[in-house]
Design a protein around this nucleic acid. Structure first.
Lengths: 242, 242
DNA sequence: CGGATGCTTGAGGTCTATCAAAGCGAGTGG
DNA sequence: CCACTCGCTTTGATAGACCTCAAGCATCCG
C-alpha cells in the first residue's frame, strides 16, 4: 500500500457554498448568511483508496462523511461472520449516520473505488444545526430518508423474487445516476456480482443468471459490468405487476 | 366504526417528567430546567383502537408519536399491493420518523391492540431541540438507532434461514419486554403468524411449522400466541453458530 | 351455538442455493 | 510482447428450503 493511500487529511480549500454537489448533499442553505456559516462545517477532506475502509464497526464515532467522489459500500457483519451489504453510496450521499446511536459505528464503510469524502465533525454539525433551522431540518430529512430507504429494502428482501430485486436495484441505480447528470440508460457497475447479491439477499450465481435472462429477454445488454438498459419499462413492469 | 375509535384527542394532563416510560422514550432530560421545557413538548394524547391506523402512508406529516400503551405494527405497501411489516412498536417507542423526509408519512401505523400514544408536534420538537442540546442529541440517537435496527433486519432478511429469523425475532422481543419489567421467558404474542411472517419475509405456514419444530426440540412451549422460552441459549446458538 | 378468524399439518412444486467447471479480462513479470 | 496468474463471471447439474394449495382444528365472540 502506498503512503498516500490512507492520507487522513488534505487541507484543500473546502467550501460547501461552491460545491457542485450541494443540491444533493446536506447543506441546503437558504440565506447567504447561512451559507457562510455552513462553510465552517466541513473541516477537511479525506481520500480513501479502493478496498480500504473509511470506518469500521466499533470505531469511535466522531464525524459523518459526505461522498465527494468515488463509490462506497456499507456492510454489517454478524458475530458468526455472515455479511450483509446494507447500501451503496455515491457522490453527494452521506455515510456514518449509524454511528450516532452508540457513539460508535455499527457498520463498515468500504470504498469500492478510489474516493474522496468531506469530513463533517458531528458535534459541529449539531451545534450548527441548533442555529440554522434549515440545516437542522435538512439533516432530519436525510436521516428520515435513510429510514424510508431501508424500509424499501426490507420490502424488497421480504417479498420480491430475484428478477424483481435486480430490476429494483437497477432502477434505483439509474435514477441516482440520472440525478447526477448521467444518462441512466448506460452504466458501469462499480460493485461485483457478489456485492450486489449480498445487498439483494441472493447468491452471486443468481445475480449472474438473472442478468443473462434480462439480456436474452432483450431488456438489458450486459458485458461484464457494462450495462445498457434497453427496456426500462419492462423493469418497472416487473416490480409493479404481480 | 365506533365514534370513540378515532378520538383524536384527550386533554389529560400530560407530563414527560412524571412518565414512567421516560427512560425508554425520547426525553432524557438532565436538568430540572430542561424537564420543565420538555413537558411542553407533548400536546395531547390520542387513543387508537385495535385494528385502526394512527397514520397512513401519504398522510401529511405533523407529529411523531410515542407509544404509551398498546402495540403497533408499521407496514409499507408497494404499488401492486405487496405488503411488508417493517416493525412492531411497544410502549416507549417512537412512531412516524419516516414522515420527516417528505412531509408525508411513508408507511401505515396500525394498532394491533388498543393503544394510546403521546402526540409530539414535530415543529415544536425541532424548536425545543434547538434549545436543549441533550434533547437534540437524544432525538438524533433515536433516529440513528432506527437506522441500525433496520440494518439488522436487512441482515436477517438477506442472510438468515427461517429458524434463525424466528429465533432472532423472539430474542429481540423478549429483550424489549425485559427492558419493560416483564420476565421475558413467558410472553404473549400480540401479532398473528401472518404478521410475523411478513416481518420476517416468510409465509405464515413457515412460521407455524418453525414454532412447532422449536416446540418438538424442547426450545419453546407454544400454545397459540402463548409462548414460553425454555432454552434461550439454544435460540442464541442458532443465530451465532453458522 | 355457529360463524369468523387464526393456527396447524400434509403433499407436492418452485425458486434459489450449492457444487463444479470453464471462460473472460486485467495486471504482472519474464 | 506474450504467457501467466488471479479475480470475477458465466453456465450447468443437482439439491434443498420455503412456498402453495388444501383440509381440518382451535379459539373467540356475538
Amino acid at each position: 500500500m502506498v503512503a498516500t493511500a490512507q492520507t487522513p487529511a488534505r487541507r484543500a480549500k473546502v467550501a460547501c457554498s461552491s460545491c457542485n454537489l450541494r443540491e444533493l448533499c446536506l447543506p441546503v442553505a437558504p440565506s447567504a448568511e447561512a451559507f457562510a456559516r455552513l462553510d465552517a462545517l466541513v473541516e477537511l477532506r479525506r481520500s480513501v483508496k479502493r478496498g480500504s475502509t473509511l470506518f469500521r464497526s466499533g470505531d469511535a464515532f466522531e464525524a459523518i462523511y459526505a461522498v465527494r467522489s468515488g463509490f462506497f459500500k456499507t456492510r454489517v457483519t454478524s458475530p458468526d461472520g455472515r455479511e450483509q451489504v446494507t447500501g451503496f453510496q455515491m457522490a453527494g450521499e452521506l455515510l456514518g449516520l449509524d454511528g450516532i446511536s452508540n457513539d460508535a459505528h455499527a457498520c463498515d464503510a468500504v470504498a469500492i473505488e478510489d474516493a474522496q469524502v468531506c469530513v463533517i465533525p458531528f458535534d459541529r454539525l449539531e451545534r450548527c444545526s441548533r442555529e440554522i433551522s434549515e440545516l437542522q431540518r435538512q439533516f432530519h430529512r436525510i436521516m428520515s430518508r435513510e429510514i424510508v430507504r431501508d424500509h424499501g429494502v426490507m420490502l424488497l428482501l421480504g417479498s420480491m423474487r430475484a428478477e424483481q430485486r435486480l430490476a429494483a436495484f437497477l432502477l434505483n441505480l439509474t435514477k441516482r445516476l440520472r440525478a447526477r447528470g448521467f444518462s441512466g440508460s448506460s452504466l458501469v457497475l462499480r460493485m461485483t456480482r457478489q456485492e450486489i447479491g449480498s445487498y439483494l439477499g441472493l447468491k452471486l450465481e443468481t445475480i449472474s443468471r438473472t442478468f443473462s435472462k434480462f439480456q436474452s429477454d432483450g431488456v438489458l445488454e450486459v458485458h461484464q459490468r457494462q450495462i445498457r438498459v434497453l427496456d426500462a419499462e419492462a423493469l418497472r413492469a416487473l416490480i409493479n405487476d404481480c
